[in-house]
Design a binder for these strands. Sequence first.
DNA 1: TACTTATATACTCATATAAGTATATACGTA
DNA 2: TACGTATATACTTATATGAGTATATAAGTA
Lengths: 113, 113
Amino acid sequence: MDKLTDFFKVLSDETRLRILILLYHKKLCVCEMCGITGESQPKISKHLAKLRDMGFVKDERQEQFIFYDLNLKEEVYKAILEKIVDNINDYPELKSDIEKCKHAEKYLEACRR
Amino acid sequence: MDKLTDFFKVLSDETRLRILILLYHKKLCVCEMCGITGESQPKISKHLAKLRDMGFVKDERQEQFIFYDLNLKEEVYKAILEKIVDNINDYPELKSDIEKCKHAEKYLEACRR
DNA sequence: TACTTATATACTCATATAAGTATATACGTA
DNA sequence: TACGTATATACTTATATGAGTATATAAGTA
């Protein structure tokens, strides 16, 4: 049950919820997530580190960038994220994030500045 | 989205998760929940107060006892609890709570001591 | 090798949270 | 009215958490 409450603790932070909903849709690198969410790089990185340490996401380097992806082994976790996505119209900020992540590469370029 | 993260914060505490899963099955009074979970009365009461203040449960006096019941207006919340219950075999402590709550009256009597 | 860029981490501070113990409240009953 | 029982709340303490700023690291490139 600890893992389950840990998962809920993860979701109880707005930034982490946004990250997980984004990764539910697409593998993304740190600076894309910063661009999409408008949050600072250390903030995103720290939350990703926590998610990684807890085993909910995995990372992979591709050239200069480190891409993150969901790593949810148990169905319950996926099912819970799915429920949120099913009701995405109730959560405009999440919906907007998802829209933006369709053009994530845009934020990759913006990163080089 | 605040309400959603609040709900996850609620679920991130083991005691509150146990309470909600119990109430998902049956309306219960405070001392029954204490008996079932083995937790102290102030601990249960404080968590119930928080759940009540957040609007996730409602209370109702019946003679000497105050009974609590779920008060989840939005489907997502119910659906999330349902997902947990669907996978109850993964969570022995929750499963055991549910078993015990089938004979909740037993704990009502034990309360008079 | 020096430099740039992408990401991670350390440090600090403010705030939130949970638990335990003691006590208050509120209703029911003798 | 006095008492008992069920529940709520206050107070304290320990711990966890998140944000911001500054800095470190690690890989790529000139």
